[in-house]
């Protein structure tokens, strides 16, 4: 459960960088995200946002990954 105080990937501003602390969600999602390099301690930067605000593109491990905000909210970043 995320509350107002936890910072997630969905809270990043364009160009802002965050470090992954934890991923919530189903085991399936965790496996898919970790296969793409979203594991604890990895740096993620917000790049482009699609015209309607969703999905968004993130820079991670030298490549660009797009995620819907629904999933981005499950990725908790290290404290702000």
């Amino acid at each position: 459960m995320s509350n107002m105080n936890t910072l997630t990937l969905a809270d990043l501003k364009p160009g802002q960088e965050g470090v992954v602390q934890m991923i919530n969600g189903t085991a399936d999602l965790k496996r898919r995200l970790s296969a793409l390099g979203l594991v604890n301690g990895v740096k993620v930067t917000l790049g482009h946002t699609a015209p309607l605000g969703d999905p968004r593109a993130y820079e991670v491990l030298d490549y660009t990954l797009s995620l819907r905000n629904e999933e981005a909210r499950k990725i908790v970043l290290q404290g702000a």
Binding site: L36, L65, S66, E70
Partner: peptide, 9 residues
Amino acid sequence: EAFVMELPP
């Protein structure tokens, strides 16, 4: 399924 997609160069 989650929309998790690489945007290749």
